[in-house]
Design a protein around this nucleic acid. Structure first.
Lengths: 201, 201
DNA sequence: ACAGAAACAGTCCAAGCGTACGGTATTTGG
DNA sequence: CCAAATACCGTACGCTTGGACTGTTTCTGT
């Protein structure tokens, strides 16, 4: 009577459990941090058996490397969607900053940050992150360029400034959690960015 | 015949071994990262006995919290010294950026970053970091103000921009290690910073 | 139906952390 | 100078956990 008429291909089965594991890993990284993330907990969160995780990811590093790819893809996709969702009439410069802030202050970024920092001292992870880094940055610059259109000339550096600035702002605000007065920095930067872009063109 | 005529107070003895332990902890964090930092290795690096570490820091978190204070103090002091060492005649704005970059790209910063990120998901560490954060930022803003003098008016936001921007730049460059093209961002920002400051005054 | 892949379940070994204790050396205060 | 206090040493133990491994069962494709 166990109604299991669902018949899935091997590839589908594989993909779903893999996704479950990677989602669980990402959630664990976000909530517990890299140091406290154990394969056991990931396995538990994913709701699979011990051996299943090992079947997909022989070692912990393999899991983390795959998780890196997973969250990076999520970040790229989320960014693309958010960029596409910006209304036509909106101020493009303000929109860019809001877009970047939404990305750099969201849960996916903090998950990625855990892997990022861990990669500094782990050769395998570093290789994986370095490989994805380029693709991530390239994709994001594309999205930024699309949002701005070609009415602002070459905004390469101002965009670069914005990304780095908001990255730093996000991290320096991370612990206290209190955006508070730092919010003004964000507002101020909107004005300054406009100034820099107008000045150069 | 053991020539040990040196007579140190208990407090001095305590302070030196404490410093040895904290330096070892910092070195371990820098080289191995937070996740791979164990009390055993710290104790080994410091060259003290197991019981000695426990005598000073009963738990690992105690050690990490103390290490946080240690590296923060180092960062503040290093920053002060570097700020004071800037020659009189130098361009103050360029000097500020170089100063910030020197801090944010140095080993002490990356050590602090490990604790910073770990603090996001550890309540005890977070409390410690949050408490020091304010002092650190305040001290640094003071140093920046001193370097700039009062010939630039209120440079609060431009300074804030610079700190956040370089923080982000340091972290996004961390993994690849290749500063390369990003160096141009730094150079460009020197011009932009000047523009922003002149514009506002 | 049957070979192969995927998922399940139970186990082993090592390592880390924390606790405890007994012992030595140095300093301090009387 | 002597005793109490404090720092340091060294080792051992238990507990827990993390990571890796081995069989067994279930499901898919042909």
């Amino acid at each position: 009577m166990t109604a299991t008429p669902v018949r899935r291909t091997q590839e589908e089965r594989r993909a779903t459990t893999r996704a479950k594991l990677l989602d669980a890993a990402a959630a664990c990284l976000l909530e517990r941090g890299y140091a406290a993330t154990t394969v056991g907990e990931v396995q538990e969160r994913a709701g699979v058996a011990r051996g299943t995780l090992l079947h997909h990811f022989p070692t912990k590093v393999d899991l983390m490397v795959a998780a890196t790819g997973h969250v990076t893809a999520q970040r790229i996709e989320g960014f693309r969607k958010a960029a596409a969702a910006i209304p036509e009439g909106d101020d493009r410069l303000d929109a860019v900053i809001d877009l970047a802030w939404q990305d750099l202050n969201g849960p996916v970024f903090f998950t990625a940050l855990e892997l990022w920092v861990a990669a500094r001292t782990d050769a395998d992870l570093r290789a994986a992150v370095a490989a994805l880094e380029e693709e991530l940055f390239r994709s994001m610059r594309e999205s930024y360029a699309e949002v701005l259109g070609d009415s602002f000339g070459d905004a390469t550096y101002p965009i670069e400034f914005t990304i780095d600035l908001l990255t730093g702002l996000s991290i320096t605000t991370m612990v206290s959690g209190q955006l508070g007065p730092r919010q003004r920095v964000l507002d101020r930067w909107k004005k300054s960015l406009r100034m820099l872009i107008e000045e150069q063109s």
